[in-house]
Design a protein around this nucleic acid. Structure first.
Lengths: 220, 220
DNA sequence: ACCCAGAATGAATGGATATTCATTCCGATG
DNA sequence: CATCGGAATGAATATCCATTCATTCTGGGT
């Protein structure tokens, strides 16, 4: 639930010992999901094969079907994992009763959304690979919109609190929340597709600007 | 170069006459590209096959390779078509010397970006299907970023003019332009993936809000 | 009316890939 | 230490799909 770290050099195809190992089901599942993420990022969703994924994970071909029944299901579970990791992280920050200052909480949110963890190319690739198929696959739409809705509600609530605290006039929390999350999504897209023109630094500045224009007292 | 219309009921698998017809190369190419767009929208990029595309176009399997050499190339050309249609439309409006009022030009741009033509599910699906693969396929990145860069420049120029005309203070045209196009991209994503939560009407309101906050004198 | 360049066809080919399952082997248990 | 449930393997299978090309047919030119 909180790995979010390695993913890069996790499974060096063990040069030393190739002895067969038995590991708990949950661990194997995660191993395969991580490998799937790497494969999608490197080769694109449409080019991913089971052989690719299992060998990336340092395992045999049969094992994926043992733990996930089918390729389709493996892909579905991978999307669920990425979606929950992203939205879970956001929600934790937004609820963050440990961070009483609302402006500070906004900052933390922005850091998370455009910081290292989320904007690693790997994760973004996966994210948008699925978005691309979502139009044709209701299953994907459902997975994403389920977690998305909750995050949207939390964001709206946070904005509402900020509006109340700052006594901002003529601002609609709901509309602003939609705008902000759309902006973040769009920035992610830009970082992925035109990294030459949009740096992470500039993406942050743009998002911060949006917030500053809406909540001038809360953003320095 | 300006079709942008039908695409829906174009090629009814002719129930009446199935007589073979010879048509100019350009026409067949467009027919196949249109069919590809429909197939991607309906089945997803990763599930599209040559059979699917050619039968959707009401043609035989061999013809795609005759006109496009390979599936890869057909997909590439389809992306190029969609990208050019979208960005070309934007650029035409932004340059629009026929529309002297800058605020009006902004409105027209927004209408185009979130109006019927562009936000048809079909086109959006295609758009994001390719974005999803762009991380792994430099060819796609190149096609998109080429047209994208030009549109970004025009938008920045338009914003510059508006800033000058309105004597707005403390606003950076470049940053604002990045923000605006990212916002539009994000809204498109929302319309595609969570159509239940984000209507076209609301998407427009959100985008308009962004512009109003930046250029209050130019947007009613 | 006839011809023929080349557009269009679709059966055949070969390569790739998801999925199965008989077999192997680990390691917890008593 | 011997046993055995079930985790792991990977060769084999069946399916699917892009691409080819020998053949058919069309329609403009003469």
């Amino acid at each position: 639930m909180s790995d979010a770290s390695g993913l890069m050099t996790e499974e060096a195809p063990q040069t030393t010992g190739k002895r067969r190992q038995i590991r708990p089901k949950a661990e194997r599942r995660q191993q395969l999901i991580d490998a799937t993420i790497r494969c999608i990022a490197q080769h694109g969703l449409s080019k991913v094969t089971m052989q690719m994924v299992t060998s990336e994970a340092g395992l045999s071909v049969g094992i994926a079907n043992l733990h996930f029944q089918s390729k389709d299901n493996l892909l579905k579970e991978t999307l669920r994992f990425v979606a929950e990791e992203y939205h879970g992280g956001q929600i934790k920050i937004m609820e963050g009763s440990d961070m009483p200052d609302l402006g500070q909480r906004l900052d933390a949110l922005l850091d998370f959304q455009l910081g290292r963890g989320v904007t690693q190319r790997q994760k973004m690739s996966v994210w948008f690979a699925y978005y691309g198929e979502a139009g044709a696959r209701p299953v994907y739409q459902k997975i994403v919109s389920t977690v998305d809705r909750l995050a949207a509600q939390k964001l709206e609530a946070l904005f509402s609190d900020i509006i109340k605290e700052g006594e901002y006039q003529g601002v609609d929390a709901r509309e602003l929340a939609t705008g902000y999350s759309s902006l973040i999504d769009g920035l992610h897209l830009g970082l992925l597709v035109t990294p030459r023109e949009l740096t992470k630094r500039r993406a942050r500045a743009v998002a911060r600007d949006f917030l500053r224009r809406a909540f001038p007292q809360h953003i320095s």
